[in-house]
Structure formats: structure tokens, C-alpha cells
């Protein structure tokens, strides 16, 4: 097995200070405009990969960034009581999931996921952060030293796939048989 040197990874983080959010949705607007083709040619917050969960009269202002697509909805859920009102777990969930329409392309239903505005040349910071004049969203890049990571060669990957499909024993038997020939 090959072993790599210690590796430094850049971790991109958006820090959300919900106490500073005023609910103007500039983040949603900038996100949706940036991700259209051509860039900035339309606004549609339903296409945004960030959404501000807002319930003004309960003082709820939570910008949430679209996370991973999930194939199945959760089998158990939490319920939150905030300021006397009940919220289900989905309210603050970043996933694009079959149980709801949030973070899906409104036309195709395809899942949306935040890509931190990856772009060539790279932006100084994601569009939502740049649009937030209130400091509710800030951007940080952190260098993180990753533990030694193993990389696997083609053969290992092939064996792994086979083992997964047929079980280790069958693969070992086959290997033994072949090596006798």
C-alpha cells in the first residue's frame, strides 16, 4: 500500500451569526443570480443554494446553506420548541431530500448543493458572504493538516469492489484457484 506525505488541506467555512441576520435575503438573491447561465441573467430565490429560514415574530432568522443530497428521508426526527413555537427538524435541515421541495431546482426537481461559488478565477469569498452587509455571514479559509492518508492502487480498488459484491471468501477462493493455475 502506498503512503502519502502529511498533507495540508484548505477548509472553506462560512460562519453564520444568526444574531446579525436581518432577513433581507441578499444572500439568496446573489446566490441565485450567480448560479444562472449566463451569470446574473436572472433572479429566482427558489434556485438559491442558501435560504434564510425566517419567522420574524418569533425572532427566527437562520441562513442555511444547501448541503448533501439524500436519497431517503430521515426515519426519526427531532422537534424544536423555540419561543413557544414548534419547528420540525426539516426547518433547519440543509439537505435536499425527497420529503420536501427546498434546495431543488424548481423546474427539474434536481437537487441543489452549495459549491462555495467555485469559479475560475476563484472569488475572494462566496457571493452570499459578499452580499451580506450585516456581517451575518463571514468567510474563513482554514489550513487543516490532514492525517496521513492512504491512496489505493487500481488493483486494490478492483478487489474491494469484488469483495463487496461476492464476499471476501469467494474472492480469496478464486484468487487461490487462479494462483494454482
Amino acid at each position: 500500500m502506498e503512503r502519502n506525505e502529511k498533507r495540508v488541506k484548505t477548509v472553506k467555512e462560512i460562519i453564520v451569526d444568526t444574531s446579525k441576520c436581518v432577513g433581507c435575503r441578499a444572500c439568496e438573491i446573489a446566490c441565485s443570480a450567480f448560479h444562472t447561465i449566463p451569470k446574473y441573467s436572472s433572479v429566482n430565490t427558489a434556485r438559491s443554494r442558501i435560504m434564510v429560514v425566517m419567522d420574524e415574530f418569533r425572532d427566527i432568522f437562520v441562513p442555511i446553506r444547501a448541503g448533501q443530497y439524500t436519497q431517503a428521508e430521515c426515519n426519526g426526527r427531532n422537534r424544536y420548541m423555540i419561543d413557544g413555537k414548534e419547528y420540525d427538524e426539516c426547518t433547519f435541515c440543509p439537505a435536499s431530500c425527497p420529503s420536501r421541495s427546498a434546495f431543488r431546482e424548481p423546474d427539474s426537481g434536481l437537487p441543489l448543493k452549495c459549491d462555495m461559488c467555485e469559479s475560475d478565477p476563484p472569488l475572494e469569498k462566496p457571493m452570499c458572504v459578499d452580499a451580506c452587509t450585516f456581517g451575518a455571514l463571514t468567510y474563513e479559509e482554514r489550513e487543516e493538516e490532514k492525517a496521513e492518508q492512504e491512496t489505493r492502487g487500481d488493483i486494490e480498488i478492483a478487489f474491494e469492489v469484488l469483495a463487496k459484491k461476492y464476499g471476501k471468501k469467494k474472492v480469496m477462493d478464486a484468487f487461490t484457484r487462479l494462483s494454482k493455475d
Binding site: 443570480a33 444562472t36 449566463p38 451569470k39 446574473y40 441573467s41 436572472s42 433572479v43 429566482n44 424548481p106
Partner: peptide, 13 residues
């Protein structure tokens, strides 16, 4: 959930 279009995207932005 529909788009609102911008005439001159780059310059307008």
C-alpha cells in the same frame, strides 16, 4: 419559483 430576467447581466450586476 420562476425567474426574473435581467437585460444586461454583467453590467447590471
Amino acid at each position: 419559483t420562476k425567474d426574473v430576467y435581467i437585460a444586461n447581466p454583467e453590467k447590471a450586476w
